[in-house]
Amino acid sequence: MTAKKPLVIVTRKLPDIIETRMMELFNVRLNLDDHAFTPAEMADAVKEADVLVPTVTDRLDSRILAQAGPQLKLIANYGAGIDHVDLASARQRGITVTNTPGVLTEDTADMTMALLLAVPRRLIEGERLLQSGEWSGWSPTGLRGSRIWGKRLGIIGMGRIGQAVARRAKAFGLSIHYHNRHRIDAAVEEELEATYWESLDQMLARMDIISVNCPHTPATYHLLSARRLKLMQRHAFVINTSRGEVIDENALIRMLAAGELAGAGLDVFENEPAVNPKFLEMPNVVALPHMGSATTEGRNDMGEKVLINIKTFADGHNPPDRVLEDWV
């Protein structure tokens, strides 16, 4: 007798190649028009699904998970970050949670480096000047930015992405510094010529550029608080391709407006998809719509990991990307 295929409910439209393979393997309910699920739709999904495939745009808090049916045993998240899933509630209900780590490392590091170049060199300002037709030609004082060669880069979070950023930045002549929960392996530290700072406060006060590459957890919410932002030098820049919640946005806006920081490159925001309009009005801010993982290769690789996690779980084994209890 053929085993019954699990009902897999997917909350957003995935790449065609992934949806096709998913349909071959499982009993699947797709989101063909790619609309964001309402809370009522999400509640219905957890009541029916054997496997739920959410994304970063979904909120699976305790109230939603309290409505889950007993058959829901796996949340196979499409994405590496899982701060939108209440892990404690999931564990309490015997629901395994998986994610897709590793496959977005290079793409996110590329985006971090792009912002790290674009903000100090005022690339977007220059492009807007051309588009407006107001550029009158080259001049010795026009659009002067800041050189990055020889500057100090402080990386907050030296995991896969932080290390990939460090490798790129080292090639551009930046001095690599980092703060992390745990000091990285000595061999990697030597390869990157990276200086470890146990004190985040001390590192912030001495860097020219700060790159946020740590996950959003209860411990990192507003890690860059108003107090910590004020430790930074006036000529310093902030780059964030992690999660908006890691930075106190209101404090960052106040300091940028007052000239207490030189600029910011942001791919993520606290209240996505809403973005504080003040960011969009500032010439020294490059704001992007959460594009860090937006490559065809990366999104397909994410989907492949979701498929493997579901198939492994359905076959009665522990999925390879199970989120462990000590994630936070």
Rank of each mutant, 00 (worst) to 15 (best):
R299H: 09
Q202G: 08
R91G: 06
D301I: 06
R254A: 15
I209R: 01
A36M: 10
I95G: 03
I18W: 05
V165Q: 04
I161R: 00
V188H: 15
R183H: 13
L32S: 12
G263Y: 01
T96C: 09
V328S: 15
L14V: 08
H235V: 03
L174R: 00
A169V: 01
Y221G: 06
R63I: 09
S139Q: 15
T112A: 15
G81C: 09
A219P: 07
L266H: 04
L252N: 00
A45C: 08
L224F: 03
E190T: 14
P289G: 06
R29L: 11
Y221C: 09
E297H: 13
D321L: 06
K47Y: 06
D44F: 02
K73I: 09
D58A: 00
R322W: 12
E106V: 11
S175D: 14
T108V: 15
W138I: 07
K170H: 09
V323G: 00
T2N: 15
H235M: 02
L200A: 13
V286P: 01
R160N: 15
Y221N: 12
R144I: 14
L25E: 14
G133T: 05
W327Y: 14
A257S: 10
T195L: 11
D208V: 01
Q71G: 12
K4C: 11
A187E: 14
Y221A: 11
T11V: 03
V188Y: 11
R29I: 11
F172Q: 02
T141D: 15
T98L: 01
T38S: 14
K311P: 04
M282H: 12
T98D: 02
L204V: 05
N77S: 07
Q71H: 13
F37K: 00
E325F: 10
I310Q: 09
H84I: 07
I176S: 07
G137F: 11
T2H: 13
T98S: 02
P273H: 12
T220Q: 09
D58Y: 02
T100M: 07
R243K: 01
A194L: 11
T38P: 05
R93V: 06
W327H: 13
G159A: 10
S132L: 09
L231Y: 04
E193K: 12
A80G: 10
R93L: 08
A187Q: 14
H182Y: 15
A166H: 00
L204P: 00
